[in-house]
Design a protein around this nucleic acid. Sequence first.
DNA 1: TAAAAATAACCTGATTGGGGGGAGAAGCAT
DNA 2: ATGCTTCTCCCCCCAATCAGGTTATTTTTA
Lengths: 210, 210
Amino acid sequence: MSRDLDIRICIIEDDETIREGYVYLIGNTPGYKVVGSYPSFEDAAKKLASDDPDVILLDVELPGISGIDALPKIKKLTPEAYILILTVYEQDILIFRALGNGASGYLTKNTPPEKIISAIQEVMEGGGPMSAHIARMVISSFQRNEASPLTRRETEILEQIATGKSRKRIAQELFIDLETVKSHIKNIYHKLNVHSKADAIKTAKDNKFI
Amino acid sequence: MSRDLDIRICIIEDDETIREGYVYLIGNTPGYKVVGSYPSFEDAAKKLASDDPDVILLDVELPGISGIDALPKIKKLTPEAYILILTVYEQDILIFRALGNGASGYLTKNTPPEKIISAIQEVMEGGGPMSAHIARMVISSFQRNEASPLTRRETEILEQIATGKSRKRIAQELFIDLETVKSHIKNIYHKLNVHSKADAIKTAKDNKFI
DNA sequence: TAAAAATAACCTGATTGGGGGGAGAAGCAT
DNA sequence: ATGCTTCTCCCCCCAATCAGGTTATTTTTA
């Protein structure tokens, strides 16, 4: 029945009802094949490599080790597999940790079944499927605060400082005097109400000034 | 014919054929209304504010000022409007600059018409529409290089250094001796073949070690 | 149980960082 | 036309940090 070219899927999800739902959904879709289904990473770990999945659907809240912390370990077991996060959580910290740990997509659990199938298809074709709200949060993470108190030059200099460069080097690269750089830094510190590089960088990053 | 609740669209695109294609597509879709259509930012600037668009479709390659550089100016003219980039370019630098400058979505020009309409819908509903390949690049930007030569502790310390903290402060926050931090830094420098903070940070970021 | 990683010590010299003040020139906006 | 902002540069001071060398012990992990 199932062809050799079927996309091989593993599911790691602790809620049995949801897990079986996915198994049913994917198992009944032509071209897709469930090769493994586990309620925890610990259970999956033993068989994952031999399952040889193309795509892994991973829940973030799991008994034992969390899905996010399991990500690097899964990557080691099946380096070629794409991992899609399937979760109810939309907290930015979780999203960015998941993506940073190697997830190739992030879907929320209200995603309709046909979207899950198309997300699997999409990731196999080089895409990065995300739920709409997740995508917005990801895009927002790139955006600056338009209400920054820093001038253009001050922002530029603080960015340079954040790369670890010394004031002298910044002066050389911007073709201005060291004293000018120092003046800008003093102004930056006053505006941000800080007294050190580290605090300036932190405040600026927290507020998306840089 | 067109209701008051229609989504108001502006189009800034220099290629007349493509521009008129969008005007036709959107103008003939119920619920959507083209309120402005311009071949350059300079032309759009005068009328954009009074057009009061909900969504702006913006090309990146424009005569005069580029779409990406126009983004902040457009934001000032119509702070409430969502801006969707529509372009043939898939270079990461352009994508990240566009998103950093305030774009709410990024579509490539091979996007089929119905997807453009749904992207407009999506951005109005709080989403962040992206073409599949763009989304993958965005997600990839969060990911680390798994083949880092740095140990966990070294990575952690280099990350701290990249926040501008002094070695002493890092030592205190990690509950280790200053000398230990110095040892780690020496090892980091040797592994990365650099001789300064700035170079270490640059090398590590370029290679996605941090 | 070896190897890798994390920890800590002692040495030296050059560079950087933070804070105080003041001041001129260019550009923008009302 | 005249403020206001921004960018530029100058002087002072002193503490703190950074880069580099070498060696060695204790955990941790494979």
